[in-house]
Amino acid sequence: MNRVDLKIVLLGNAMVGKTSLMQRYVHDSFNGNRPYQNTIGTVFAAKQVQVNGVSLVMGIWDTAGSEKYDAMTRTYYRGAKAAIVCYDITKFSTFQRAKHWVRELRSIEENCKVYLCATKKDLCDEGFVSDDPDLQNTVEKYARGTQTKLFITSSKTGENVDKLFDEIVQDFVSNPENLQQVEEAIVLSRKPEKRYCCTVI
């Protein structure tokens, strides 16, 4: 069984629900009822899934969203294969920040696929009105224009959360480049093996 690492970063303003999203996916829990929640903070999670005969180790990284740390965010998404850019469906300003990350990811981390994720859909369903009524439209237009996949999720109900991560895994596995590495490595392993023999005899 081949082991492949998949690094996923979560980006978004503070309080948009990044941690909740991760908790929902990894531990299938939300806020108070967190049976798996350890006492330590929940900023990192690893989850292993089997897809197409490949053992995929997902490392999910929560990040500091404050603008103060903008300059360092690059360090976070270095080597990431997927980025979930979150915005709060009820707050227009969080979408503005989301656009900034999409732009930056596109320009800096070429091999990182970007996913737009609206959070707190349940609030919307409950009739909570966003501070910008046209937000949903704007986002959809933007997503189409930049060819970014958009998911509207709720960590509270778990709606669309698994769908989002499944999509990420599928996209990752379907890109031959990501699995190519594995084959390359096998070829590489042959060459030095011969050398080991040479050095010993």
């Binding site: 990044k18 330590i40 903070g41 900023v43 929560d62 500091a64 404050s66 740390y69």
Partner: peptide, 9 residues
């Protein structure tokens, strides 16, 4: 539990 925004500072 602390979040990433509290952890980094």
């Amino acid at each position: 539990p602390a979040s990433a925004d509290e952890f980094l500072p």
